[in-house]
Design a protein around this nucleic acid. Structure first.
Lengths: 154, 154
DNA sequence: ATCGAACAGTTCGACATCAAAATGCTACCG
DNA sequence: CGGTAGCATTTTGATGTCGAACTGTTCGAT
């Protein structure tokens, strides 16, 4: 009750700003022109990585894994396929689904990209207070969950 | 030294994920179809709000204020102008720059949108621990600053 | 068997976004 | 005055993104 609703709102705005800025900064740091990761778009990177760590996925699963719409996923896969990094394989027994598989070229590329991706991430985050870090992670998860949870009802 | 570099990397990945998810969730919550704010795109909303709170701005200042490229800003202003929400005014003495001004219609719209924007933000964030909140904000700022700072040198 | 609901992907239209090239001005220098 | 450097904006071309409409498939109910 010490704080007015208006002050609270302003602090919320501030956190929103900080979140956006941090996300943009990290993403642009990783995909900066000249870095190895700049060879693929963020979405493409996310897709390749998901396929690399989890193996072949249905296009829908992949879309879900990297939080993209199905329409968008079609385009992303189109572009990856055009460069020969993934293939669309039919699934025996259900002709509705397409399995997306990394090609050798795709696997090679993501293996090439991951070390730099990793070192850039370490650049950015290392040395920060671990406890703050964990609390921040938890808070952000709580925020996302809160919205996700209240989504269905509203 | 208790934690391996690999563990650290995984925690970094986790925070990145959480950040992205939280940002996406908040943004989609606010601009959800049906909400008043869904009448304009997030970029358009940001532009209108910046103009509303700071007064007329050069197109370049506006781009900077909402972290968009100049090319992108042109399109955003085009779309706002097309709907009669802003106008481009020449500046006396320097014909290179364009001043972007809210029209009455634009000011009216943003005034209509802000209350709902505000209440949706409060929905999302209220009740969270204030101390965590502040620490999280500080951490995110530190991350963005760290990248922004190291940007020039690299 | 076949109808219809549910599902997986694709297509389409609109907008967003960026980087790079082009345009149009200003300012400065000789 | 004329040239050049630099800035603000626009244009262009490629990609990303979504939501809605569409196509084809599966599967359950009748």
């Amino acid at each position: 009750m010490a704080v007015s609703q208006r002050d609270q709102y302003l602090r919320y705005r501030s956190l929103c700003e900080s979140m956006k800025r941090a996300v943009d900064a990290v993403s642009s740091h990783i995909h900066r022109a000249g870095s190895a990761c700049s060879e693929v778009s963020p979405s493409q990177f996310a897709a390749l990585e998901a396929l690399y760590s989890r193996g072949p996925l249905h296009q829908g699963e992949l879309a879900c894994a990297i939080s993209r719409s199905s329409g968008n996923m079609t385009v992303i896969v189109d572009n990856l396929e055009r460069r020969g990094l993934v293939t669309r394989c039919g699934v025996h027994g259900d002709r509705r689904v397409v399995q997306i598989c990394l090609t050798e070229k795709g696997a090679h590329l993501i293996e090439l990209l991951l070390p730099e991706h990793r070192s850039r991430l370490i650049d950015v985050f290392s040395g920060l207070d671990e406890a703050d870090f964990a609390r921040c992670d938890a808070l952000l998860r709580e925020i996302a969950a809160r919205i996700g949870g209240s989504d269905a009802e509203s």
